[in-house]
Computed example of a mutant assay.
Amino acid sequence: MALTAPPEMQALLLDLQALDTHLQQLAHREKTLPEHETLTAITAESESVRATLVDARGDLDDSRTELGRVESDVDLVEKRIARDTERLQSSSSVKDIQGLEHEVASLRTRLNDLEEIQLAVMERVEVLELTVEAAESQHRDHAARLSAAQEAYHAALAALREERAGVLAQRETLSASIPDDLLALYEKQRERYGVGASHLRARVSSASGVELTGSDLETVRAAAPDEVVMCPDSNAILVRTGESGL
């Protein structure tokens, strides 16, 4: 036995389908939010920005450690020069004096070499300090961009979900006014085929976009106003109104 329902009840299915279509659109929008794409792109930069900063700090620490070693060597050589110079001034042995003078000369050569190394390392430290400052600035900027992107995404998401909650409330109210058997058929067809109700307008089914002709059109014309008929192309409930062109 064919399912029947008053035409005005069948017409409510179009409103229900509109709400369900809206919900589908909201779900799609949630998956394709531009704010989410922006957040994903900025997040993808995080590891690179962090690695740049870690590497810069590591290079600076290594160079500072090297500078400390060179400065220690310079200090040690300077002390040895001072000690040997003092011994030279107090020594009366020609042999000792010659040995000390040779050692002092070697130490001064060594000191010159160390001072050149020290200067080069100091210059490298200065450059690396600037590099670290730039990396820290980049890291701060990235953190600010990431925070702003997160806020924008969560705000957009909250707005969508608030809209969705409103549509669901409308759907619940509307569903309560539709006969259970008609609603059950609508839900079954929507779950199976993606669309539960189709408006027949000017002989064209809105769900399929196909014009009814021939035997399909005659079947629909012959159906009683309260008989629930199905769209032959989309398998949705075909809702007839004054616009159907029958």
Rank of each mutant, 00 (worst) to 15 (best):
L88A: 05
T40D: 09
S177Y: 08
E133H: 12
E187T: 08
V239Q: 07
E123S: 13
Q170S: 13
D55L: 08
Y193M: 10
S92L: 02
T85Y: 05
G68R: 08
A120C: 05
Q189Y: 06
A18H: 06
L12Q: 13
V125T: 15
Q138N: 05
L157F: 09
E162V: 01
V54C: 04
R69I: 04
A11F: 03
G209Y: 09
D181L: 01
V239F: 04
R64G: 00
R69A: 05
V210G: 04
H28C: 07
R240M: 01
M230W: 08
R201H: 15
R50T: 01
V70M: 05
E187L: 03
L13A: 07
D73K: 11
H28D: 03
R57H: 01
E211S: 13
S48Q: 10
P232S: 02
L26I: 13
L3K: 04
T43A: 13
E115M: 02
P6D: 10
E71K: 04
S215D: 10
L67S: 11
R164D: 09
E126H: 14
I117M: 05
S208E: 07
L19W: 12
R69T: 06
D226H: 14
L13V: 02
Y193P: 09
A184D: 09
Q98P: 04
S205T: 07
R110E: 05
L174R: 13
Q170T: 04
D181K: 15
A51E: 12
G209I: 00
A56F: 12
R83Q: 11
D84E: 10
A197W: 02
L26R: 10
V104F: 14
M1H: 09
H22L: 12
L217S: 09
Q10P: 02
S92A: 00
